[in-house]
């Protein structure tokens, strides 16, 4: 099982191109407010994450995801369920 830190580091390359002002991505980065992602863009990010970790992220969960930390926690949960 990957640690939260390892998961975070694997998510960064997916999110970094979206920080158009070059700001640093942290666990507290808010996908909507800090990265200005709209719902379509968030779904694209989720699709990349799904491919990267071989999981399916239910839409029901996506609406609860605000920050990068939330993303890490949900991936952790889905990976545990998959095992």
């Amino acid at each position: 099982m990957l640690s939260d830190r390892e998961l975070f580091e694997q998510i960064i390359p997916i999110l970094r191109p979206l920080a158009t002002d070059g700001s640093e991505i942290t666990a507290e980065t808010d996908l909507v407010h800090d990265l200005s992602l709209d719902s379509l863009k968030i779904m694209e990010v989720m699709a990349e994450i799904e491919d990267r970790f071989d999981i399916s992220v239910p839409l029901n969960i996506v609406s609860d995801i605000r920050t990068v930390r939330d993303v890490v926690l949900q991936i952790q949960k889905l990976l545990a369920e998959a095992e």
Binding site: M43, A47, D54, S56, V57, P58, A82
Partner: peptide, 23 residues
Amino acid sequence: ADVIRFRHNDIQDLEKRLHRLEK
């Protein structure tokens, strides 16, 4: 229900998700 999207008209993506759900 849990709602999972697959990429538009992408059969491989659909199968991947069906496979994950088997368990």
